[in-house]
Every structure is written in structure tokens, then in C-alpha cells.
Amino acid sequence: MRVTDRNNIPQLIKNLRDLKRFTVEVGVFGDDDSFYAMIANIHEFGVTIQKASGSIIIPERSFLRTTFDEKQNEWAQFAKRQLKNVLDFKIDARTLYERLGARMVGDIQEKITDIEAPPNVSSTIRKKGSSNPLIDSGDLRRRITYKVVQK
């Protein structure tokens, strides 16, 4: 008779430690594309640009913070379901964070697509040919990404 050691405790301990080794960051990263990081920052917080002929006000259209506020409980539940897979040795900790990052990116991109307020001024709508305040070419939306960072 052959006896197989099925002690999974060392692997379980490693998986649990690995969960603390990673974090996920989501957004537009300056080191990847500083122009779109600036555009994201302008729309996230708003800005007033002073010119000799007056000022241009770009209102706050938060898509990162508001998505976080709206989705954080869903993301926590998603991570909890993925944690079960880590504990069952179906995925590793990094994969949990990769899946969570992809989910977060999708939710933020959806927010960018759906946001309607504050609306663009009529001159901007005529110039863009669209009333969606955060989508012109779609480049900002495409640049939302995530990084799994090892601590």
C-alpha cells in the first residue's frame, strides 16, 4: 500500500502569505502615458484655465473615485469569491489580483462610457460631434489599466 502525504498546510500558508505580498493599482499611469494621466486628472478633479480672454472651466467629472465609491462592495465580494479559489488551490494570489484589476478596469471604463453630467457645453459638442463628456476619441477609456504590484 502506498501512502501519499496530503498535508496542504505548507502550501496554504504560502498562499495566505502571498495574498499580503500583492496590491492592485488601477487608473491611467503617468509612466505609461503622461498626457492621458494629465487628461484623467483634469476630468477627475476639474480645472480652471485662465486666459487673457477669460477662463475656461472644465468641471469635475469623477470616474475613478465615484466608481470606487459605487463598486467597492461588489469588488470586495468578487475578491471574496476569488479567495475561495486561492484557498482551494485553483488559482494563486497574483491571479486573484489580476482578475480583480480586470474587473475594476471594466467597471471604470463603463463609468466613462455612461457618465453624462456635467454635460459638455454646446461648442464642445459641435466640435466633438458627441455629447458624452469623457469620450472624444476613446483614448482615455482605452488607457484605463491596472498593475499588480508586489510589495
Rank of each mutant, 00 (worst) to 15 (best):
G106W: 10
G101T: 06
Q82P: 00
F78K: 10
L19I: 08
R141S: 15
K90N: 13
L100N: 04
G27L: 15
T4G: 03
L19E: 08
R143W: 08
G106T: 09
A79D: 00
L100V: 01
L12V: 04
Q109L: 07
T124Q: 08
Q11L: 07
P119G: 05
V149E: 09
A37M: 08
Y36W: 12
L96Q: 02
L16S: 11
I39S: 01
R94N: 05
L83E: 13
D107W: 03
I135S: 08
G46C: 05
P133K: 00
Y146M: 14
T95R: 14
R94H: 09
S137Y: 04
A76E: 15
N120D: 07
I49E: 14
D33V: 03
P133I: 02
V24P: 02
F63P: 00
T67N: 04
P59N: 01
T66P: 08
T66L: 14
A93N: 03
I115Q: 06
S55G: 03
A76N: 15
G30F: 03
Q11A: 07
Q11K: 05
G27P: 00
P59T: 01
M104A: 07
I125M: 03
F78L: 09
Y146K: 14
Q11P: 00
R141K: 15
S53I: 12
D69C: 12
L83G: 15
R17F: 15
Y146W: 13
Y146D: 14
R21N: 09
K20P: 10
R65P: 07
R61D: 09
S34K: 14
D69M: 11
T124A: 09
I112S: 02
G138F: 11
I91Y: 09
E98I: 03
I58P: 06
I58Q: 05
I56H: 02
D139H: 13
F22T: 02
L64P: 00
T145M: 08
N132R: 13
L19F: 10
E116W: 14
S131I: 00
F45A: 04
N8A: 07
